[in-house]
Structure formats: C-alpha cells, structure tokens
Design a protein around this nucleic acid. Structure first.
Lengths: 332, 332
DNA sequence: TTGTAGGCGTTATCAT
DNA sequence: ATGATAACGCCTACAA
C-alpha cells in the first residue's frame, strides 16, 4: 500500500475514472449501487483520506476560520475559543490561531496571514480589535469574508459584532451596592480597552443615577499585580470613606481583596467588592467574590452559531448585544 | 484592480512570464535588477499576496502545525501554545488547534483531521496523549511527520517527547517538608493522568527516602472543586497527624488551603501546603503558595525550537527532560 | 536572464 | 451512470 493514496490510485484499483471516485467520496448521486459499494470498500481498505489542500484550491474554500487573540493566555478568551472550535469542527471547519499582541504592526501582519491562508472567516477575540487601524486592515485584506468581533464592533459591511452589555452591567453593580446603603464607590481598572471604557461609563452613569451627589472615584492601576495591590491601598488611604469597589476584572478584585484585608479592613463589612467576568477566580478567593457575569459563554456560543449561519449563506443581524448578570457571593 | 490578484495578472502587467514573477516573489536569483524592481513595484501596487493553498499543493508542505489539546481552557497548556505559536509564526508557520476532549474516538478524529489537512508537524499538549490508542493512531495516520508530545513520550520513530521531571520534583517537595521536620505527609491528586502518576511515584519515593517509617497517604479527590474541598477536610479528620500536603495542581492547593483554614487550621504552622505548576494561582492566594515549577515555559520554548529544527531537517534527541524547581512562598 | 510546460490532488462541466 | 478534460494558483525543471 503506497504511502499516499490519491483519488487516482483508487480509481485505478476500481477500474473507474477519478470522477466516479470523487462522487463516492463526496456522497454525490449518480453512482450505481454496485460501483459505489466497490469503491467504498477500496476507500476503507487503502485508508484513503482526501487532500484538503487540493480540495481547497478547487473549491475556493479552505474550511478554516482564522482566530485572532491578543494573548491566548488570558482565560476568558480561551473559553470563547473553546466553544467556537468545538462548534465549528462539528461542521468540518478548523481553527487557525494567532496571538497578535497589542501592537498595530503585529496585528496587521496577522490579518495578512489570514488573507494568505484564505480562511473562510475570521474571528477577533476581544474589544481591543475595535480600532481604526484594524478597520483599515480589514477593509484592505479581509473585505470578502465574514469577520466576527467578540465583544466589539466595527461598521463594515462584512463585520459582525457580538457585544456584552458591560456598560449596563456595571451600572447595575452600582445599583446593587447603592441598594445596600453604599454610595461612596470606586472603580479600579487596569487599562483602558474599549470594553473597559464602557465599564467606566457604566460606573459613572450608575453613580449619577443611584448615588446622586457622590463623586465617582476612578483609578487606573496598570496591569502588574503589585501595581493593583498598591493602587487599592492608595485608594483607601486617599479616600477613607470608600465603602465599595468595582474592579474591571475578577483577577484584579482578588488582588484588591487581599490588599484590603492586609490593611485590616473587613470584606464586605468595611468595603464591598465586585469583580467582572464571573471567572473561576471569583469562586476560589476568600471571601468568594461577587462578580458581573458578562455571559461570555452565551456570547461565544452565539458567535459560533452565527458564524456558521453566515458561512451557510444565511443573513443575520450584524450587531447583537448580550445582557450581563450579577452573580452575588460573599464579598458584597 | 481585480479582487483576487494572481501571479498571472502580475506577469501580464509586467510583460513577463509567471515564472519570473514567482522568482521575484520567492526572492530567487536569476532575475535582472531592472525586471525585479519593476515586478516588485507591481506586486505592491496590486497588493499581491500569494495563495498559500496553491503553494502548499505544489510544495507538498502546508506550513501548518497541528496542535492537539484536551481542553484549551486549562491554563498551563495555553502557556505552551502561546510560546509555540509565537516561535513558529516567526518562520511563517501557522497553528491549527483542536480540543480533543479526553475520549479516544474524538482524539482519533482529530488525528485524522490533521492528516487530512496535511500539517507539517503535530504537537500534543499534555501527558494524556501518552496512550496505546494514540500510539496506534499516530502510526496509522501521522507516521510521516514529526510529532511532539509536551510532557509525554511514545516510542515511535517520528515522535519526540519533552518531559518535565515531575517525579523528581515531587520527591524534592517531600525532601523540603522533611527538612522542616514534617514527615507525616499526604498527596492529593484530582485524577490519574500519566503526569500525575509520576507525581505520585515521586511522592512515594520521597517518603521512603526522606520520611522512613512513615506511611505515604494518597487521596484521589476527583476534579470538582467542592470535591477537592471535601477530600481535604476528610483527609485531616481521618489523619489528624498530617503536617504537610502536596497537591497535584496549584488550583487544588488553593481550594485545599481554604478547606484547611475553614477547619481552623493555620497555614503553614499546622499544615504546610505545596502546589504544582507555579501558576498565577500560587501568587494570588492567601497565604501565597509554595509551588513546584515544572518549567513549562522552558519546556514549551524548547519544544518550539526543537520542532522548528526538525522541520529544517536537523537531527535532535527524541527524548528530553527538563528539571523542575521549587518556588518557596508563605505556605511552607 | 527569461519563458514553456507539466504537475500537485481535487472538483466541476461537459460529453457520452 | 460514467468518463474525459479543464481548471484552481503556484512552483520548478528544462529549454531557449
């Protein structure tokens, strides 16, 4: 048995033409019961597997979806990739993954690679791709395939956005705290991605609505964990009246809780804490963390299904919003 | 400007043959300075990007590496993928990623897809692929390309294994605890992967060497977090003499610490705790967690570089071991 | 230095 | 129902 078995080999063994074999391989009609059986048998016997590359070339479809992510190590995005890949592979699609970092030039290169690889669709994980530079790149390199942005949106005819309502969600967090009589609140954010900007807006909006007369305190902590620790303690030294803090991510909140505890403050008695993402961090920290669930599961699943629909030629809404929900635990 | 620009179009515009354009595109010699310049200009002007599919078909190389992972949401494996992808993309390679789950049939299907996609190499993330079933599948479907197993090994001519010395590492953990006068020790494992079996062996080996006369206590907790919590508390109720616990993963250790604390035990005074992986969990929990660093960073990087070497036709060791190191923190 | 022609493995369009 | 033939876009001897 040859190392590589082609459709030609099978044709020879079966005394038919390659076309007939192709028909059998692709379950097409117009093949007699008998020959179909004979060929099917040979296919198994010789362990024939079609060459997807050749197939892609002629069908003009690679059955691959390119996935861009700034850093695959960030957990809430891998969740998305997981569902996406699972859903797509059920339909014979594969996922090509690139870590793009956060720099423009590297992101652009990734887009070019996707074009070169002739992916059938692209998925951009995260709001950080919601930029003008990316818009230009998509226009230039990927204008002919559907592009999905997970938690972001760009106004281009082939771009679809599935967006979490983090603005409304954070506003609801303020409402929750205000309902517990806490109106001196702060928001700690590591860095301003488009998503985090929305959270900040939600915070300020919530403050004006639910804590009238109080000044919203916003702190940008940077991404390093010691930096977050420091920023949290500094915040309470400068604003001792603070009774509640919302962090832009669970991980930050976990660090923050630690910083507060080691200052001698009790959670939630002295200061209530809320995180965002409802990740596993929220469950394992002490006290367990109240967190805004931005429904990344729903979001990913919606995206995966919508993506497949579009690939099938269906028409769907280009912009979808998924509502967030607060999961309350011990920290509030 | 046409939507898709081929090497033929450029040839026409430049009044040369397609082969000449191909030479320019691939930086080959034997093109006059003048025509090269002319063609280069047109290439830019028309935004020509070679069709990788066609290229793959003729060169018999897809420049893709298939990556298999049981679940991309497990953090320590995504670290590996990160480094791998970064290293490979520097050389024009792309990563095709599949979540295989833990079932045999799904894993087999993934292998078939890799064969069908004609990947140039495969990477299996995690010791769970070190099975007889996988060996058969590799023999049947991927015998002609290099296959790397991250933290595992199979004795096949085309299979390379990069393995963390977790056995020795866990033994060292026992030594560390014994050195602090703690000889009543336990090992809590969620489930028995090949990697975790080695850890267990290391534990038992360390016990006989460093804690002679003491019985090694081993508990299998299952993977659910409440299960781990319960198992930890049960352990101490049944064996109140236990003075130190090694958990098969940091995450388990974090849960364990919590379980112990809520029983009224002090860490590390009453019970010392060690985790494995030296992940971010170790840094954020309270108290911070002493952890066995199995050098996944080195391991991934080594693998990425070795993989590229093999792709270049170089000859390397089929089995490499990376030594582990203990990072001591507050929990011991 | 440049061009011609064949082939990579498959599908698709015609005939037969 | 089956087969011949021409793509798909590119690379690569070989010829000129």
């Amino acid at each position: 048995m040859p190392v590589k078995v082609t459709i030609y080999d099978i044709a020879r063994y079966a005394n038919v033409s390659p076309s007939t074999v192709s028909r059998v391989v692709n379950n097409q009609p117009n093949v007699s019961k008998a020959t179909r059986a004979r060929i099917t048998k040979l296919l198994k016997e010789y362990n024939y597997i079609p060459n997807e590359t050749a197939r892609s070339l002629v069908t003009q479809s690679s059955r691959m979806v390119g996935v861009l992510i700034s850093d695959i190590r960030t957990t809430h995005h891998t969740d998305g990739i997981f569902y996406l890949q699972r859903e797509l592979s059920r339909h014979g699609y594969s996922c090509l993954i690139y870590n793009t970092g956060t720099g423009d030039e590297e992101q652009l290169r990734s887009i070019q690679v996707l074009q070169q690889r002739k992916v059938d669709a692209a998925v951009l994980m995260g709001s950080i791709y919601q930029t003008e530079g990316m818009k230009r790149a998509l226009k230039k390199h990927l204008s002919s395939i559907p592009v999905f942005i997970c938690n972001g949106y760009l106004d281009l005819p082939n771009v679809y956005g599935i967006i979490a309502d983090e603005r409304g969600g954070v506003s609801d967090c303020v409402k929750l705290l205000a309902g517990k009589g806490r109106t001196d609140l702060a928001f700690i954010v590591n860095q301003y991605t488009p998503s985090n900007l929305l959270k900040r807006e939600g915070f300020e909006e919530g403050m004006t609505r639910y804590c009238p007369g109080k000044t919203p305190v916003v702190v940008e902590s940077g991404t390093s964990l010691p930096g977050v620790y420091q920023a949290t303690q500094d915040l309470l030294r400068q604003h001792p009246a603070i009774r509640g803090i919302i962090f832009s991510e669970d991980l930050l909140a976990v660090i923050g809780i630690r910083a507060l505890t080691e200052m001698g403050l009790k959670i939630p008695e002295d200061v209530a804490v809320i995180g965002i993402n409802n990740s596993s961090y929220a469950e394992i920290c002490t006290p367990t963390l109240t967190s805004l669930d931005n429904m990344l599961y729903d979001l990913s699943l919606t995206m995966a299904k919508d993506l497949y629909s579009v690939l099938q030629g269906e028409h769907i809404n280009r912009k979808v919003m998924i509502y967030s929900e607060i999961v309350e635990r011990q920290s509030t």
